[in-house]
């Protein structure tokens, strides 16, 4: 067990290193840094100072090592665009809103996805099943940013109950969270449903029935646990999709989160900001995947935690 976690942890570090290095290489080759733009009134001297400031005058290898060190300490220097602000400060200021939105979305997605999936499986080939699966396919088909915009156009403009700009009360969170969650809800619901249908045909369900257990006991104790195990494995990927979705949804709802800064930094080619956001989000994603693997190993007694999943 510990050996598995150790190995998995090492693997996580390797992946992180790859990400940091790849971002560095990509940014080195990236065209059009803000310093290239013929800024009004930027003298050659000023430009050189800037270059020195970002270590762009040093040999590549030194730049790389410097960068690696900074990445580990989450020190990404000042933003190239908003030069007065440190990137890490900007990220820190956007983080609470993004975290709130992300958590609300994740909880909403997991709970409603599982409930819908189980209901659909238990009412297999009945109206609830068809309706749930139809809603799910719609949820997968309408991109989250389209949903977000449709919500604004058709819901929040009609009902004052759902404010669009700003961030603060729980009412601000409802529509963006719904737009972000509907895809994950659909994926979880479909997966839960098909796992549930498969598990319900297993022999051990028949055994449980033969013991005289109630339907409730059979579903909750014997079927649900087995059906939900594989759902854990996709949580990592879902978190990633919620991240990327939040970039655009935050922008559409004008939520002051990391995502909005990120979108701005893309438009402005603010490389330190782009790199920082990429590295931080990738780190969170990789840590999530790590946690998912370990949790799966703990929850499923069959996994001896040395077999890698296919």
């Amino acid at each position: 067990m510990l050996k598995f976690i150790g190995k998995r942890f090492l693997w996580m570090i390797v992946t992180l290193w790859v990400i940091i290095t790849v971002t560095f290489i990509l940014m080195r080759f990236a065209p059009g840094s803000p310093l290239d733009i013929d800024d009004v009134g930027m003298s050659d001297q000023a430009r050189e100072n800037m270059m020195a400031h970002y270590n762009l005058d040093q040999p590549v290898i030194l730049q790389y090592l410097n960068y690696l060190k900074n990445a580990i300490t989450f020190d990404f220097g000042p933003s190239m665009v908003t030069r007065s602000r440190e990137v890490s400060d900007m990220l820190a200021s956007g983080f609470p809103a993004s975290l709130q939105l992300g958590l609300v979305t994740l909880i909403l997605a997991v709970i409603s996805g599982i409930i819908l999936g189980v209901l659909a499986a238990l009412r297999h080939n009945k109206l609830i099943d068809y309706m749930t699966m139809f809603i799910a396919i719609i949820g997968i088909s309408i991109p989250n940013f389209i949903q977000a915009m449709l919500f604004i156009q058709y819901i929040s403009s009609q009902f004052d109950f759902f404010p669009t700009a700003q961030w603060g009360t729980w009412r601000h969170a409802i529509l963006p969270a719904l737009a972000l969650a509907s895809g994950p809800i659909a994926i979880i619901a479909r997966m839960t449903r098909s796992n549930m249908l498969e598990v319900l045909t297993e022999d051990y369900i028949k055994t449980a029935k033969a013991k005289g257990l109630s339907n409730f006991q059979i579903v909750v104790k014997h079927a649900l646990r087995n059906a939900l195990l594989p759902v854990i494995t996709i949580l990592g990927v879902l978190v990633a999709s919620i991240f990327t979705g939040s970039f655009v949804v935050e922008r559409i709802f004008a939520i002051p989160g990391v995502g909005q800064y990120f979108v701005e930094s893309i438009t402005n080619r603010d490389y330190p900001m782009i790199m920082a956001t990429t590295i931080i989000y990738s780190t969170i994603f990789i840590i999530m995947m790590f946690i998912v693997d370990v949790v799966y190993g703990i929850v499923d007694p069959r996994i001896q935690l040395h077999k890698k999943e296919e």
Binding site: E202, D203, Y204, K206, T207, A208, K209, A210, K211, G212, L213, S214, K221, H222, R225, N226, L229, V299, D300, P301, R302
Partner: peptide, 25 residues
């Protein structure tokens, strides 16, 4: 009514012991 009877009045075992036990309990 059958649930009250199953397990109490009649017990049953199945062919494949590898799949007849719940793996996570």
């Amino acid at each position: 009514q059958m649930q009250k009877l199953r397990g109490l009045e009649m017990g049953m075992i199945f062919q494949d012991p590898m799949t007849s036990l719940n793996p996570v309990i």
